[in-house]
Structure formats: C-alpha cells, structure tokens
Amino acid sequence: PDLGLTQLFADPNLIENLKKNPKTSEMMKDPQLVAKLIGYKQNPQAIGQDLFTDPRLMTIMATLMGVDL
C-alpha cells in the first residue's frame, strides 16, 4: 500500500502550492528536489527510500498533510 501518498502527490498544483508555502518555498528553488517531487506523481513508492536520505521530504510531507512540525 502507498499509505495515501498517491493522493498527496497527485495534486496538479503540488509544486506551485509548495512554492507559495513559507515552510517549503526555499526548498522549491532546488531543481533536483522539484524533479523528485514530479517523479513521485508517477511512482509514489519511490519516496519511501528518499525519506531516509533527504530530510526536506519529511517537511514537505508534513506540509502536504497539514501537520505543523
């Protein structure tokens, strides 16, 4: 199971919303991170391994779920 990750990354406004959010806007200036996020739309399971190697993803996930870290 993808634990709902498919829906989190399926939002067509995902990148724009993250660019507008004060907690994630600075991160979204990294083209490699943006490319990763776009890739998760097609393969949400890929985030599982990346969560352990890129701490920014935890902040992004929390933001998408509405959790304040």
Rank of each mutant, 00 (worst) to 15 (best):
P1I: 11
D2I: 15
D2A: 15
D2M: 07
G4W: 15
G4F: 15
L5D: 04
Q7K: 15
L8F: 10
F9W: 09
A10F: 09
A10L: 13
A10C: 07
A10V: 08
A10R: 11
D11M: 03
D11K: 03
L14K: 01
I15D: 00
I15G: 01
I15T: 02
E16W: 04
N17L: 12
L18W: 01
L18P: 00
L18E: 00
K19Q: 11
K19G: 04
K19R: 12
N21W: 07
N21C: 06
K23N: 11
K23E: 07
T24K: 00
T24P: 00
T24M: 03
T24E: 00
T24C: 05
E26Y: 06
M27N: 01
M27E: 02
M27Q: 03
M27P: 01
M28Q: 00
K29C: 05
K29E: 08
K29P: 00
D30K: 00
D30C: 03
D30T: 01
D30W: 01
P31A: 09
P31W: 05
P31V: 08
P31S: 07
Q32Y: 13
Q32K: 12
Q32M: 14
L33S: 01
L33G: 00
L33Q: 01
L33T: 02
L33Y: 03
A35D: 12
K36L: 12
K36C: 04
L37P: 00
L37Q: 00
I38N: 13
I38E: 14
I38Q: 12
G39A: 13
G39Q: 13
G39V: 09
G39E: 15
K41S: 15
Q42G: 11
P44F: 07
P44R: 03
P44I: 11
P44V: 09
Q45A: 13
I47Y: 10
I47D: 03
I47F: 15
I47V: 12
G48D: 11
G48Q: 15
Q49A: 13
D50M: 03
D50Y: 02
L51Y: 09
L51W: 11
L51N: 04
F52M: 13
F52C: 09
P55I: 08
P55Q: 09
P55A: 11
P55G: 07
P55E: 10
P55M: 09
L57N: 01
L57Y: 04
L57F: 09
L57W: 11
M58C: 10
M58Y: 13
T59G: 04
T59F: 14
T59V: 14
T59S: 07
I60H: 00
M61L: 14
M61P: 00
M61K: 03
A62W: 10
A62E: 15
T63G: 04
T63H: 10
T63A: 15
L64C: 03
L64R: 01
L64V: 08
G66I: 06
G66W: 05
G66M: 07
G66L: 08
V67A: 14
V67M: 15
L69R: 08
